[in-house]
Amino acid sequence: MPLPRLARLLAFALPLLVFALFGLWLLRTAFSASPTVPYAEFTRLLEAGRVERVVVRGERAEVTLAPPEVGRVAVRLPSTQATSGPTLISQLERQGVDYRFEAPGQWLAIGLNFLPILLVLLLPLALFAALLVVLVRRGRSRTP
């Protein structure tokens, strides 16, 4: 009778695995996020010379603060500044800030594109496994 065991395992393990992966993703995003400051605050920090490094990814920038305020903050850039525009670059160069522009990560978009495919494949499999468990239990109860 290995089939009912497999069906029972699939019926409980697949949802548990999905919830565990979602929980890990939530933990990762919760602990890796830097505090966000408004763009006006970022420009004040830049003009005061308290910015050491800036990494721009899309419309967000990860800003490393110079001593005495060592730390990181995130800033959402206006759409005109998010590209490597001359205004932002000239401000960063004038202050001697180490900066670079990186392409935003595509893994979230790729994962979201595959999510419907996974649901179409895994949901019927889980339902089939649950149906097998019910049928096997029903068959056991009728066996004399």
Score class of each variant (00 low, 15 high):
L121P: 09
T43F: 00
T83H: 09
T43W: 00
A40G: 12
N113E: 08
V97S: 03
A13T: 14
R76G: 01
F22G: 13
A82T: 09
V37M: 11
T87P: 00
E102N: 05
L26N: 08
R44H: 11
A61E: 04
L6Y: 01
R50N: 07
S141P: 00
R57D: 04
L108V: 14
L26K: 10
V18L: 14
S79E: 11
A109W: 11
R60P: 00
W107N: 10
A129F: 08
V97I: 05
L119C: 14
E52C: 00
R138T: 08
G58K: 02
P2R: 07
G96V: 10
G111M: 09
A7N: 02
A33I: 05
L123R: 03
S79K: 13
Y99V: 09
V133D: 07
L77I: 10
V134A: 12
P67R: 12
P68E: 02
G105H: 09
A66T: 07
W25F: 10
R28A: 12
A33K: 13
L24W: 15
L92N: 04
G71Q: 07
L135F: 11
R60H: 06
G71Y: 08
L26C: 06
G58I: 06
A33D: 09
S141E: 13
V97N: 05
I117W: 15
Y39L: 08
E62S: 09
T29C: 01
T87S: 04
A82I: 12
L21T: 09
G71P: 08
L135H: 02
L77M: 11
R140D: 11
F101N: 06
A109I: 06
G96E: 04
V70L: 07
R138P: 00
P116G: 11
R60Q: 10
L46R: 03
A61V: 05
V56R: 00
V18P: 02
L122Q: 08
G105N: 14
L65K: 04
R140G: 01
G85Y: 06
L88K: 07
P78I: 12
T64Q: 09
W107G: 12
R100G: 03
R76E: 10
V56Y: 00
L122M: 15
Q91F: 06
R140L: 12
